[in-house]
């Protein structure tokens, strides 16, 4: 292990729903314990995961998600009804709590403290009006070339 180059994982996080915010953070928080260098590029809706104003209140919608568990049989089209997204989010938060998983802000802190590189996509910020000061401390701003430069040396590359 002495002089060997560190293994590296590069992830693109493009989704901003509560469920899809977890996989990049689960993998990143595990990888750092295995001495793997990790970089996550947050783009499009994935930017919400590192947006201080939003990351504590990510949601999940039952509409168009027939896989979402429901206490009663439920036609998916009813997901358009007011309050359904809030209900789905509440249910998912309950499920997450049941397995004692950390919240997204807690998970993110574990990753940042462990040295995961967090990169926010500059055009997404411009497009959605997100400022550098809206982002969690430690998040850098960059573009595709910087991510590719990191990812070209990676052993694992994932698009989430």
């Amino acid at each position: 292990m002495e002089e060997k180059k560190k293994k590296r994982m590069a992830i693109i996080a493009s989704k901003g729903t509560l469920d899809m915010a977890y996989p990049p953070l689960v993998l990143a928080s595990t990888a750092i314990t295995m001495d793997v260098e990790v970089g996550i590029f947050f783009t499009l809706y994935g930017m919400d995961i590192v947006n201080k104003r939003k990351y504590g209140s990510l949601k999940v919608a039952p509409i168009a998600n027939p896989a979402m568990p429901s206490p009663v049989p439920f036609p998916n089209i009813l997901g358009v009804l007011p309050g359904m997204t809030a209900m789905g989010t509440m249910m998912m938060k309950g499920m997450i709590k049941k397995i004692n998983w950390p919240t997204i802000p807690e998970f993110l802190k574990t990753c940042i403290d462990g040295g995961v590189r967090m990169i926010a996509c500059s055009p997404t910020m411009e497009m959605t009006g997100v400022k550098k000061e809206d982002l969690v401390k430690g998040v850098e701003v960059a573009g595709a070339a910087e991510f590719l430069d990191f990812a070209l040396e990676a052993d694992i590359s994932l698009f989430v």
């Binding site: 689960v26 928080s29 595990t30 314990t33 397995i99 004692n100 998983w101 950390p102 574990t110």
Partner: peptide
């Protein structure tokens, strides 16, 4: 006990 992946590994580390 009671924790699920990845938390046991995080705790171990």
């Amino acid at each position: 006990k009671g924790l699920f992946c990845p938390m046991p590994v995080v705790g171990l580390n």
